[in-house]
Design a protein around this nucleic acid. Structure first.
Ligand SMILES: [Zn+2]
Ligand SMILES: [Zn+2]
Ligand SMILES: [Zn+2]
Ligand SMILES: [Zn+2]
Lengths: 143, 143
DNA sequence: GGCTAACTGAGACGATGTATCATCAAGCGT
DNA sequence: ACGCTTGATGATACATCGTCTCAGTTAGCC
């Protein structure tokens, strides 16, 4: 799902499509990685010069509520990324390093889950977490 | 994995077992749900009266780095829970409501993943996210 | 029991996120 | 095309969060 489609979804959900929101969406879309809110602010100001902090936080919360963006915990605070399908990754809890994974054992469960729970399911995240080789040494986690 | 075992893991990893750390671990263990750092502080002070904010943050970060606690994004900020095996749940992005799930399509991938990546894998999280029935109405997400 | 390095709490600090409010403009009906 | 209505914006102020520093304490190891 690219930025253009997300804008349509916003409209479809009854929200206005403003320059500020487009700037935030495009900043997230062009980054290709998770951004902290302040990074979103900096990047989005290139397209919407007077953009304020509050609007960035409001927009990120809105996108997350609609399932269009995904908040992820990271060292240093929550970061956001646009929802581009589902997310599968391996994350180091020590330093935050991550490897994207190319597997999905969860597809196929979504429809049944939605039916049984009444939820409108936007996607899923499968995250393996542990320590990368470097952090295994640094934290002396002998396991 | 219960609180006692976590304390042993801390020791095994070369860290001291102090009253402050035990209070944090037990507070998380008794809660049975994710806690915000401020809730951890309040709960842990019952066991360790003079406990300071900084120590709570330090301990939570340490536990997370060692893979013994899990930070999760929630409306209102990051929350923590003790790692009790893997986590599978369905979360509403609107209000934070969650349903635990009783399925695991990911077990069995861990060993192969660890071997190929060099990571020491502590566990995984499979999280389906979307909107609960209430929030579907409230946010007028017509989808 | 004494040593030593790790840990702690206090306090100060900068960063983060929210609430308020006057102003503005997106989308719509005409 | 034009003006209305209402949601959205940016500025400001504020509360909270999370980190840093440092002097004092203590857990774990002889
Ligand atoms: Zn690492
Ligand atoms: Zn998947
Ligand atoms: Zn909900
Ligand atoms: Zn699983």
């Amino acid at each position: 799902m690219d930025a253009r489609q997300l804008e349509e979804k916003l409209r479809a959900a009854g929200y206005r499509l403003t320059p500020a929101r487009r700037a935030v969406i495009q900043a997230l879309g062009e980054a290709g990685r998770e951004l902290a809110p302040r990074e979103v602010l900096a990047a989005a100001r290139a397209r919407c010069p007077g953009l304020g902090r509050a609007t960035v936080y409001r927009t990120l919360r809105l996108l997350a509520q609609l399932g269009l963006a995904l908040p992820l915990p990271a060292p240093g605070g929550i970061r956001y990324r646009l929802l581009a399908g589902d997310l599968h990754r391996l994350v180091c809890r020590g330093c935050g390093a991550q490897l994207p994974l190319d597997l999905c054992p969860a597809r196929g469960l979504t429809a049944r889950l939605a039916e049984r729970s009444g939820y409108l399911i936007a996607g899923h995240v499968l995250e393996f977490y542990g320590l990368c080789p470097d952090c295994q040494r640094r934290l002396s986690c002998v396991e």
